[in-house]
């Protein structure tokens, strides 16, 4: 393999990691509050509210059901507005965040719902406010489960980022499509696939190791 190709691939890895990690951070920034809202406004939640739950739940479901490639194209004007361009890895972050946030919200919701109702009841009996229950009970008690969810989210967002290569996104996905698909360089395509698999494995391994260390159950 030429030196040039190695350079391209290295760049691809860096871009892929950049897109995936930054998108995950933003997706969690928006997804955690949404997940909390979904959990606490639920029928058995601490601030039961049918209307808010329905509204947020519907929005989340609608965005989740749009295929990522279509969402990516549909929000091109928004992407241009936010980052000034529609190609490259930074531009890909916008649709990635939008696609991943509802996914993350559901992941967070299901993690928070795993927290024992009895513990929440005990916290209430000790005079905790709803905010204190969220901050000091729900989120810390769900931490291991949230971290497992985070490794799953990372892998999902990584695969989305590779898809964005089709429409001018950067990273390993773009290399796979441009060299492997359009130029029939199957070897390059397979190398990128192996690299992507490697990155997912890495995320998974690091994540699970971290969870084992953090979980006190």
């Amino acid at each position: 393999m030429s030196r040039q190709m190695i350079e391209i691939l290295t760049n691809g890895i860096v871009e892929t990691l950049y897109m995936t990690i930054v998108s995950t951070i933003f997706a969690y920034l928006f997804g955690i509050p949404l997940g909390v809202i979904l959990c606490i406004t639920d029928k058995k939640g601490i601030c039961h509210n049918k209307i808010i739950n329905l509204l947020v739940g519907m929005t989340v479901n609608i965005i989740r059901s749009i295929p990522f490639l279509i969402l990516l194209v549909a929000i091109l004007p928004l992407t241009r507005l936010l980052v000034g361009t529609t190609i490259g890895s930074t531009a890909t972050i916008v649709p990635l965040v939008i696609a991943a946030t509802p996914f993350v919200a559901r992941m967070v919701e299901s993690s928070l719902k795993e927290v024992d109702m009895g513990v929440i009841e005990a916290a209430k009996a000790m005079g905790s406010s709803s905010f204190q229950i969220i901050w000091k009970v729900l989120l810390p008690e769900a931490k291991p489960s949230l971290l497992v969810g985070c490794t799953i989210s990372l892998a999902t967002i990584l695969s989305y980022s590779a898809m964005a290569g089709f429409v001018g996104g950067g990273g390993l996905g773009a290399i796979a499509i441009n060299y492997g698909y359009y130029r029939y360089q199957a070897d390059i395509m397979w190398i990128t696939v192996i690299l992507l698999v490697g990155i997912v494995q890495l995320f998974q391994e690091i994540g699970l190791r971290f969870v084992r260390k953090v979980d006190k159950r």
Partner: peptide, 21 residues
């Protein structure tokens, strides 16, 4: 909430916070 601090409660399933020592 203030009054609840004056009313302690214990449960059949203990309900301790699993992630806190």
């Amino acid at each position: 909430r203030k009054y609840r601090q004056k009313i302690g409660m214990i449960f059949q399933s203990f309900n301790l916070l699993a992630q806190r020592n």
